[in-house]
Structure formats: structure tokens, C-alpha cells
Design a protein around this nucleic acid. Sequence first.
DNA 1: TAGATAGTGGGGGAAAGTGGGAAACTCGTC
DNA 2: GACGAGTTTCCCACTTTCCCCCACTATCTA
Lengths: 168, 168
Amino acid sequence: MGESGKLVLHLNHKAKSLNQFTGEYECRVDAKGRLRLPSALIRQIGGVNLNFTVNRGFEQHLIMYPKEVWERKTKEINQLNIYSQQHRQVIRYFYRGATEVQLDTADRVLIPKSLLEYAEISKEVMLFAYQDQIEIWSKERYKIMLEQEPEDFSSIADKVFGNNAADV
Amino acid sequence: MGESGKLVLHLNHKAKSLNQFTGEYECRVDAKGRLRLPSALIRQIGGVNLNFTVNRGFEQHLIMYPKEVWERKTKEINQLNIYSQQHRQVIRYFYRGATEVQLDTADRVLIPKSLLEYAEISKEVMLFAYQDQIEIWSKERYKIMLEQEPEDFSSIADKVFGNNAADV
DNA sequence: TAGATAGTGGGGGAAAGTGGGAAACTCGTC
DNA sequence: GACGAGTTTCCCACTTTCCCCCACTATCTA
């Protein structure tokens, strides 16, 4: 979809959650579609929180949110106007495929096949955790993603960091 | 060392921290991927601070920040709008594999394999500490980086210091 | 030369991660 | 309801990795 930045800017996008994940983890999905979370990540999550929502990300990867993060995000989305076609599109696009999952006794989640297919995940997976979410990428796609430098990185970096930081 | 072009890349007016590192250190990663920090550097760090965040730098090297320095840096990036494709790219480009590490009892950190690969580090490593960060280079790449400075340094310096010197 | 500090390397126990058998459950069909 | 195919999930066994600990070497200082 188009970015329609104006549309979504009403949303309170700023991440002010307690969850602040970090880390890049290499791991794998087994033949049954189970993904074990690295224990370093489990520790960050904090033990109490075993429920997650997985859905499609915007760039052919998956995103996993702790349940209460997901609930907060849906609240934001639900503020959009369902009677506007454009908004409906955004709403659907946001929800597309969201599935609740939970850790089994060996700290694994079962990822639905349709989602694995969408992200082209067969075995090797990279987890990329930042802010309040955990992105799930196939290893190949992750590599490709890293190699792409955003065209306007320096101009946005300018804005964020305030001066000519990324000029050279 | 000292006056490299790279130095200028990281100008960040907002970064005034207590941490102020200096130095160039030669050291090595052992067969298990552990990097021992030189004790001179440990002394600069100040003992209290055992947690770091490592991520990819922009020139095929790694950067290590004390945890709270990293957290300060992410604050600004986290203000971006995750629903904007452009901003998402920038956020990912900024985080690019950031992973928390900590010193073991022998003052070593275990660097994730994916990051070692990215920086082409096998054994010999150069640490380059300045401001509030520690750059980690493979010895070969560090040499190459140093060698290619002189040609364009003056023109870059012109650009950076010539008109925007006020900020610095 | 001895003693202290810095740096290197590896053994081994514990923890993390992997894989598969099989019981339990779901759902459609006869 | 009975049955079977497919899926989910618990459990256990096995492999791999991590990290504490100790021992050894190298370098520096008095």
C-alpha cells in the first residue's frame, strides 16, 4: 500500500512501553514449524509473559509482539474511522494474519504455516528485536534487508540527530 | 590515529556523556569468539559498567557502547513513526543487529558470530576508542581504513569544518 | 630475579538448543 | 458415534554452546 503518511500520523506511534528488546539472534524453525526463542530473549521478556501475537510485517517478514503490546497497538488502530475506505484498508492491512501463539514447555512457539510461507521461512531464521517487538526474518531476507541503505538515511538522520551528523 | 575522517562521521551534538574513551588497542578474539578488552580500556570504563551493546558500524566494523550510552541513542530513534516505511528503514538501519553483551569474569565479551562475520573478524582485532564508543575493526580493515584517509581527508574536513563549524 | 599485572587458552559442568516419539486433541467423513 | 488423517503439545533424550574457573605465558617494575 502507499505510505499515506498523513493518514497514520494520527496514531500515537511513539514507543513508550516497558518492553525494550534488543538483540539479533540466529535460530531455526524445526520440521513442525516450531521456533525456539533464545533464552537471552526470554530473559528480556521477563518470564511472566508467555503470550504473543504474530502477524505479517510490512516487508515480507513476521512480527511478534507480547500480548499486551499487541493490545495497545490494536487500540491505536481501532481509533481509525471504519467508515472511511482508506482507513478500512489500513485496518485490514494491519490485522492481516494476526495469530495468538504461546510458548510450549520448551520455550517454543508454533508459527502458522501460512505465515511461514509469507515470510519465506524454511529453516534458518534471524530474530531482530528492538523497541517492543521481535521481527522474524528468513536468514536470506534479513541479509538483503541489512544491505539496503535507505536512500534518505542521512536526511532523516539529520532530522533525528539535529545537525549534519550523517553528512559525509 | 586520532584525526581520522571517521571521527567526524559521528559528530553528535547531543552526546555529552561521562564516558570519554581514548585509545587504539591491538587485541585478539580467541577461538570461542571471545574478545578480551585491554585493561587500560577497562580502567577507562570504570568498573561499574559491565554491560555493553554491540552493533554493526557503517564501514564493516563493529561499535560497542556502554549500555546507557546506547539507550540514550535509541531514545531519539524511537521517536520515529514505525508506520512509515521510510522511517522503518531508518530504524532498522540504525539498530542493525544491536545486541547486548557483557564482560565475563576475565573481562572478555562474547561477540555474536553474525557480527564477527560482518566485520570480517577472525582473530586479529583493533579497538579504536573515542568519545563514548569503542570501534572494533579487523586488523586488515583497520589498516585499509587508515590508508585511505589522507586523500580525501582535507576535502571532507573542509566540508565539515568549513561551514558548519559553529556546532562543533 | 622475583613478584605483580596483563593476556591467553582450554577443561568441564551447566545451560541452551534440537529433534522426534507418542499421547491428546480437532475436524471432516462415513 | 466411530474412525482416520492431520495437527498440536508434552515429554524425554541427545547435541551443542556458554561461561566459570584455573593454569599457564608474557610483559613490566622494582
